[in-house]
Design a protein around this nucleic acid. Structure first.
Lengths: 208, 208
DNA sequence: ACCTGAACACCGTTCAAGT
DNA sequence: ACCTGAACACCGTTCAAGT
């Protein structure tokens, strides 16, 4: 028994059953051990989630091409995060729930340095870094929320259900959402995420 | 006993004690009633949270100057949401946790219509609306997370503690976060939120 | 219809007791 | 030190029983 083994088991539970699948009971059963063994290596459940999240985020940050052109590096970082959060929705939930902690801090440092390399001036640098962080964490949270709603069920079916509900809204009150519903079938989360990043970078460029 | 009375009591509990203060036990005690009475008017706890959130959001949306210049109306909507979420952090948590539901849907419709009025073209309109929503929901989530961490304690003291922790980080590994820590005392969440909105709007303007 | 409150099926966490 | 597992202090929700 070790911290590593415990965190790996927790990650497996989260990946296969979603956020709700990680319970201390399920964890001890899977590890064929007692609560004391787990609590001897880990402070509490949040420590567990934070450690599992740190590992996933570290993997993404290690893949960032720091020596590339800053704008491309930022897009790479953002996409890397998106893909990893898409594969592990619980990571998104954890990031959105605990900002200012280790994993989020690492991302913040990386984003800040890349914006600095982009020559964003003085105090605008912190506004830009904060805004970009909030956008990314917002997407992370939405992704986690969708995964929570779908939970096991087909994701395409879930989106179709949403589109159906929106299409039935009062056209007078919800003209925009109805138009959005019509676009939902051809909608690609990943593309739209990147489009948002580009809007941001375009806005940041005007700060110079 | 009525749905309205129950939702008002729930709102009071949330406002005075934070997210964790709303339990069915606390609610029945405060209302001097049993569980059955509550469940007779409300589907479940989430229904309760959603209804309480709807009221707060509806108040903000009612205050949006729809006939104003779209850019100003958008800033007004964003600021209104920020202030209400700042006053009721649990609203931020609820919005971030349940997108695509009534309260978030109302915001999305409003944002979309205002961007349309801003003459954002075709499919860029949906990218822009999505990006803006994600930014706002991200900020909402962060706000809620901070309130959760502070929970009762002094907010200024909490931020000072964060700044202290950041200032003690390794300067070689975290140059950006350390610089951010130095700026934290003079940092204003509301101003930075608005700065983010402006970066967004500037980026959206380049889509035209 | 509207309400009561004991009971159920879960949680995370603790801690005396073992090795 | 490392681990076991009964027990504790909570949750949200249900439902037979009352009015």
């Amino acid at each position: 028994m070790s911290r590593e083994v415990i965190i790996r088991a927790a990650t497996d539970l989260l990946d296969s059953g979603g956020e709700s699948a990680l319970t201390l009971r399920a964890l001890t059963t899977r590890l064929k051990t007692g609560y004391g063994a787990v609590y001897h290596h880990v402070a509490d459940k949040d420590d567990l989630l934070a450690a599992a999240t740190d590992e996933v985020v570290a993997r993404v940050l290690a893949g960032v091409a720091v020596d590339a052109e800053p704008r491309q590096a930022l897009r790479g970082l953002a996409l890397g995060l998106f893909d990893e959060i898409d594969a592990h929705p619980w990571v998104g939930a954890q990031l959105a729930r605990h900002p200012l902690e280790s994993a989020t801090l690492e991302i913040y440092e990386c984003v800040g340095r890349l914006l600095d390399a982009l020559a964003v001036p003085g105090r605008a640098l912190f506004d830009a870094a904060g805004a970009l962080m909030n956008y990314v964490l917002g997407v992370a949270g939405q992704n986690a929320a969708q995964a929570r709603s779908a939970e096991g069920a087909d994701r395409a079916a879930f989106l179709a259900a949403v589109a159906g509900r929106w299409a039935r809204l009062d056209p007078g009150r919800y003209p925009f959402v109805r138009k959005a519903a019509a676009r939902l079938p051809e909608h690609d989360d990943r593309e739209q995420f990147l489009a948002g990043i580009d809007i941001f970078l375009a806005g940041i460029a005007t700060l110079g």
